[in-house]
């Protein structure tokens, strides 16, 4: 197994699938400003996907382009988190999903900036700028909705109750990580979980939200075992490439 390729798929697929989910909001946001914000964030994610999967294709060395990787793999070959493929449900759910992810992505990119792989470090640096803005945006909404009205509070608490089970997978680690750590591609990642937890605790305190007690954590995305949702995402995402193979657009 090519560990760096595998790791880049994780990064690229998280961006691709979450970008896809956000783009589903386009034209349907609760206010026009949020239509713009979600489309803009989706665009950042598609931009990240483009550079990360391009690098993945080079690292793999089999001549696959970023589009080949984005559009022509089977579901088991996607390495995104279960968290990012969860459906939009409502605006609060979308913001909670985003917040839990952004709070992880920020320390992750900060760490990856120290990678000995120059290209990966450069991607991390560029993406970090975007991620900081995404995190500010999603934290503000979690706080607004948690603190807002009785209805918004109970809705966003319910979103947290549902999504919390997917957060264990954020810190998934296997032989891929071990090997990349050994070779110095992955710098010390030990602080990421603590930083994530601190961000989450701070924001939830302001939002008056409570972390659910369920100890059970779902994982599988990182090794290609996905939820039922991914198949439908890919059906749309891949439609053109599957229906009209080998054409240029």
């Amino acid at each position: 197994m090519n560990s760096l390729f595998e790791y880049l798929l994780r990064l690229g697929d998280d961006s691709l699938i979450l970008g896809h989910r956000l783009s589903e909001w386009c034209g349907h946001g609760p206010i026009l400003e949020e239509d713009i914000a979600m489309t803009n964030i989706s665009l950042d994610f598609i931009g990240q996907t483009t550079t990360i999967l391009e690098l993945a294709g080079q690292v793999e060395g089999k001549g696959r382009t970023n589009d080949d990787l984005a559009f022509l793999r089977f579901d088991k070959e996607y390495r995104n988190l279960l968290l990012v493929e969860q459906p939009n449900t409502d605006f609060g759910f979308t913001m909670m999903r985003q917040f839990l992810f952004d709070a992880y992505r920020k320390p992750l990119f900060e760490a990856l900036m120290k990678s000995n792989n120059k290209q990966l470090a450069a991607i991390a640096e560029k993406s970090l700028k975007e991620t900081k803005y995404h995190l500010r945006h999603s934290s503000e909404w979690v706080i607004r909705l948690g603190d807002g009205t009785e209805e918004s509070h109970s809705r966003i608490q319910e979103s947290l109750d549902t999504l919390w089970r997917y957060t264990g997978e954020l810190f998934f680690s296997n032989e891929v990580d071990a090997e990349l750590t050994e070779s110095g591609v992955l710098p010390d990642m030990s602080g990421i979980e603590a930083e994530w937890k601190q961000t989450v605790d701070e924001v939830f305190a302001m939002a008056t939200l409570t972390i659910p007690e369920s100890p059970w954590k779902f994982e599988g995305g990182r090794i290609g075992k996905h939820s039922e949702h991914l198949g439908y995402i890919l059906t749309e995402l891949q439609y053109m490439q599957r229906a009209y193979p080998n054409m240029e657009w």
Partner: peptide, 17 residues
């Protein structure tokens, strides 16, 4: 219309906050 209706609770929450 649906976007507006579904977003009502969000707008109310933002105002309340």
């Amino acid at each position: 219309r649906k976007a507006k209706e579904n977003g009502l609770w969000v707008r109310q929450a933002a105002l309340a906050h």
